[in-house]
Amino acid sequence: MAGALFRPLTSGNRMQPGTDASFIKPNDRLTSFERLEIYNRQYWFRILGCFYEDYPGLRAVLGDSKFERLARAYLAKYPSASFTLRNLGGRLEKFLAEEPQWAAPRQALALDMARFEWAQIVAFDGEARPVVEIDSLLGSDPAKLRLALQPYLSFLALDHPVDDCVLALKKAALRGEASNAVEASPKSGTRRAMPLPKREKIYVAVHRHDNGLYYKRLEPEAYHILTALRGGAFLEDACAEALASAPAGDWAEVVRKWFENWRQLGWFCVQ
């Protein structure tokens, strides 16, 4: 039965002809094939529906048809390996890197958007560890100090300002939902227009505060410090390497303010 369930549907959303259903009893209204098909269709409708909800930005980037083809290809190659649908998109970035043709000609933008939307899922319900007390760090040698960062945080270096796109998409969605107008077609079939962004290098942290989801643009040097810390670098090394090629300036004060801000946001946690 499992083999039949996981089998992709035809373009008309039917079970593939020739699927073995001989182990299912027919009844007076449905053949074995038709009874099995109910489950095959339910499986695909459920996981595709979940994928639609988790990746509205990617859908806007690719358009409905291409997004659906990508979703079916991804879920056929990487079916859910978790008890929760929350993790359904966990291997999408890998898939897009392996099979970029599904997002052509917008591979780079699609990859940025997929990474950004997955980071939101992580930020929504990822683990929060106890915040490190600053007093406990006083007197520590920066050359030997490692700072842990909250597991729910993601730091992304992206080639497109997809954070702006997603915010625009959310605003458009809010406007739509505030209206009492009757929709002419099902929600899953509508696509909200989103102007595609031009290439622009951005660094962004996807985080949460008071359990609300936020995006925070980072300076390149701040991004490099945070990713180095996350990689386990000592504080002194992380700062030195991040600032090695930075333009001249009063970096000590800038970095001090960054760390104060990150501390206030609760980003530093116990190991």
């Binding site: 499992a2 369930l5 079916p79 859910s80 649908l85």
Partner: peptide, 12 residues
């Protein structure tokens, strides 16, 4: 609802 680590998310 699962087989060999693959989940259907259905009650079969």
């Amino acid at each position: 609802g699962s087989v060999d680590g693959r989940f259907t998310h259905d009650l079969l």
